[in-house]
């Protein structure tokens, strides 16, 4: 038996909007730790890792570990039927073939049940080693979204370079080139507006802008985004989900042949 009650139901709605275009079908794993998902896109270029910790739910009952295969497009359709202020409860029976999403309006005058069919998904779980990253950039998520959107009108690939001067986002295409440099700026009124560049070693990596743009669908979840770069590893683009967890996107770099 599984019963997870999330008072801030809009978080789950936003989470689905952040991953449904990247991944079609995925297993949601439920354990005493929390509600989680790990999935790759169909071409195995990107991986998304979601964790919503059990402490973040008002009520969290998960009698035993459960993996529920869901079509994220269908799950998104159902969650779109929840109001932004609704409380969402996820319910499932052990060994059942459905999951129920219950939506309660804040005044308790409307209660809706949506039952969705589960599916068997043969997914491969990958081990993500803990890594020391060469450079970590934290910036406003809206700024990162703007940069990815702007650069994708010029080129297909972004080169992200971190030096002691700052972080540079570059692209090139048929019509020309573009370079956007951000310098560290911590003298801001609101901490979420800061640009913080932690450089242990300079790094420069190339990535497909199509994927970066897809990751920025998570922008409504968090005011800030953290980009972790190492020359040997996929980039990690992380958005915190309120106080309860995160969405991390891993993207394999483009490599010179």
């Amino acid at each position: 038996m599984l019963e997870l009650r999330l008072v801030q139901g809009s978080l789950l709605k936003k989470v689905l909007e952040s991953i449904k275009d990247l991944v079609n079908d995925a297993n949601f794993d439920c354990s005493s730790t929390g509600f989680s998902l790990q999935a790759m896109d169909s071409s195995h270029v990107a991986l998304v890792s979601l964790l919503l910790r059990s402490e973040g739910f008002e009520h969290y009952r998960c009698d035993r570990n459960l993996s529920m295969g869901m079509n994220l497009g269908n799950m998104s359709k159902m969650l779109k039927c929840a109001g932004n202020d609704d409380i969402i409860t996820i319910k499932a029976d052990d060994g059942g073939d459905t999951v129920t999403f219950m939506f309660e309006s804040p005044t308790q005058d409307k209660i809706a049940d949506f039952e969705m069919k589960l599916m068997d998904i043969d997914s491969e779980h990958l081990g993500i080693p803990d890594a020391e990253y060469h450079s970590i950039v934290r910036m406003p998520s809206s700024e990162f979204q703007r940069i990815c959107k702007d650069l994708s009108t010029i080129g297909d690939t972004v080169v992200i370079s971190v030096t002691k001067e700052g972080v540079k986002f570059s692209t090139a295409g048929d019509i020309g080139t573009a370079n956007i440099v951000l310098r560290q700026n911590t003298t801001v009124d609101k901490p979420e507006d800061a640009i913080v560049i932690e450089m242990n070693e300079p790094v420069s990596l190339s990535f497909a802008l199509r994927y970066m743009n897809s990751f920025t669908k998570a922008t409504p979840l968090s005011d800030t985004v953290t980009i972790s770069l190492s020359s040997e590893l996929p980039v990690v683009v992380e958005y915190k989900v309120a106080e309860m967890g995160y969405i991390r996107y891993y993207l394999a770099p483009k490599i010179e042949e």
Binding site: E124, L126, G127
Partner: peptide
């Protein structure tokens, strides 16, 4: 042009 890497060449099956 650089070649797109595959995530599975970085992270191994758990």
């Amino acid at each position: 042009d650089p070649k797109q890497g595959n995530i599975m060449s970085f992270f191994k099956k758990a």
